[in-house]
Design a protein around this nucleic acid. Sequence first.
DNA 1: GGCATTTGGTTACAAGTGAAACCAAATCCA
DNA 2: TGGATTTGGTTTCACTTGTAACCAAATGCC
Lengths: 151, 151
Amino acid sequence: MLALEHFVPFRLSVLSNRMTRAVAKVYALRFRLSAPEWRTMAVLGRYGAMSANSVVERTAMDKVRVSRAVAKLMANSQITRRADPRDRRRAILDLTPKGLAVYRQVVPLVLATEADLLRDLSAAERAALLDAMNKLEARTAGISHATADDA
Amino acid sequence: MLALEHFVPFRLSVLSNRMTRAVAKVYALRFRLSAPEWRTMAVLGRYGAMSANSVVERTAMDKVRVSRAVAKLMANSQITRRADPRDRRRAILDLTPKGLAVYRQVVPLVLATEADLLRDLSAAERAALLDAMNKLEARTAGISHATADDA
DNA sequence: GGCATTTGGTTACAAGTGAAACCAAATCCA
DNA sequence: TGGATTTGGTTTCACTTGTAACCAAATGCC
């Protein structure tokens, strides 16, 4: 028998669904952003300009999903895309001033939501949670979306 | 600026995506099960017969998603649905012997996968992780599908 | 150089998804 | 008792998603 209460992948999925929903409320309605769009903006805001591929790695989202989020953000003038002069297949993405303004408005809102959700955790508990997640993320680093030739 | 490395909802989503993918590999190909189907079987296997609504609560999946997973599992004779005599709106779901056999085959495989993914965590770290997740789950218990996006 | 392979990214298409509308049984309540 | 509301669950429809197929630029290799 599978003790789901102690089965980490299952618990993680339930929790992630719920927290994503809670956080999405603050940017979906007010800023008309989808989760893929917000996540793309969030990594650009945090780490600066980067290629779509890097966004894929940072977010664990599918590359098609990122591609579409990028198209939407471009249409809304929230990011720019310029060809990398060193490798013209690669497109460097970055927030526009307009995108940055949205980003700066959303950040305090999602942080407040997170703080509310985490209010039962002590600082030590929160650190332990992040620490465990660091280890799991390192262990799962290679896992991407299965493709035809990838067994 | 939003420090994504310490932002729990984001980290959870990345990790959940990766672990779900890793675990799904073991039942998707070999047993032709989708994640909603497997999750439905998993709660029935763990907690015994229950209504679709209870599956929804246990898994945090949308009720439409559960409804369709149930239809598929019925078509494959892996679960049964019988009307609850006390309340004939409600349908009691349960694994068939065939479904139970599949369940029993999948369980050790997903447990082995989990063990592999968690091998960097000590027993104490794992306990701390589950403990933190318990608190977060309690805090997010009320959150249902009121808004747009997931993933 | 020239042909095959790899890599970054997009498009086409089919499948999966959820919000809203819906149906039927149960419950509320005057 | 009987109409209104609630509840368990399914269907419809529009949208999102991922797989596979694709394009173009870069790289490998002879």
